[in-house]
Amino acid sequence: MLRPDEIFPSTVLTTDRLLVRPFVAADAPDVHAAWQDAAFIDGAPIGYPYAGADLPTAAAWCTSGVEQQRLDGKGVGFALVPRGDTRLVGHVLLFGADWEARTAEIHYWTAPWGRGRGYAAEGAGVVARWALAECGLERVHLQADTANTASLRTAETAGFQFEGVLRNLTPTRRGTRADMAVYSLIPGDLL
């Protein structure tokens, strides 16, 4: 049985430009469209279940999948929506929560119509800082393919600190293996 402090609270976060909120059923068409994007499919790790997934899968993910992960104490997902708009432009997810070690990994993606505006960095930054300051985590980390310059730039812009490279770590859809850059954010980085 999970203790209450082992479940991320359901919350809405804001930045100057974004509403960072739980997913709702109305997000499903935008999530589905993002999952169909060739860049999303190519960049997704082997075995990532949502790359190219159908609309019913996107709807189930938005209405229950993300929330179940939160209720299971494993993580929390957020939709990124520009203030004054309703169209989702991205996603930030804390996952793999280790409540004993007080750590979690963070993942983000941006929909094709939201790219190039810094939404992923803004969303990842506010979610990571919230997790450290409000949820008691001591470390939020991420891995990004060293060939994915947009993801590396997102991590750095969000304030994550580069730690090193895990060489030849992840199989890719291109039939090769990717080196993964490791970044983290810890409470001391917030000062």
Results as ranks from 00 to 15, higher is better:
Leu2Asp: 01
Pro4Met: 06
Pro4Ser: 07
Pro9Ser: 12
Leu13Met: 12
Arg21Ser: 11
Phe23Tyr: 15
Phe23Val: 13
Ala25Arg: 12
Pro29Leu: 11
Asp30Lys: 10
Ala34Pro: 06
Trp35Asn: 04
Asp37Thr: 07
Asp37Gly: 06
Phe40Val: 14
Pro49Tyr: 04
Pro49Ile: 02
Ala58Gln: 00
Thr63Glu: 15
Ser64Thr: 15
Ser64Met: 09
Gln68Val: 08
Arg70Phe: 14
Pro82Asn: 05
Pro82Phe: 13
Pro82Lys: 02
Arg83Gly: 05
Gly84Leu: 10
Val89Pro: 09
Gly96Trp: 04
Trp99Phe: 08
Thr110His: 01
Trp113Thr: 03
Arg115Gly: 05
Gly118Trp: 12
Gly118Glu: 12
Gly118Asp: 10
Gly123Gln: 02
Ala124Val: 12
Val126Gly: 03
Val126Ala: 15
Val127Glu: 04
Glu134Met: 09
Gly136Ala: 13
Gly136Asp: 09
Leu137Lys: 00
Asp145Leu: 00
Ala147His: 12
Ala147Val: 09
Ala150Glu: 11
Arg153Cys: 02
Thr154Met: 11
Ala158Gly: 13
Gly164Ala: 00
Gly164Thr: 00
Val165Tyr: 00
Thr172Met: 01
Thr172Phe: 02
Thr176Leu: 11
Met180Gln: 15
Met180Thr: 05
Tyr183Trp: 10
Ser184Phe: 08
Ser184Gly: 02
Ser184Asp: 15
Leu185His: 01
Leu185Ala: 01
Leu185Gly: 01
Pro187Gln: 10
Pro187Trp: 01
Leu190Ser: 11
Leu191Cys: 05
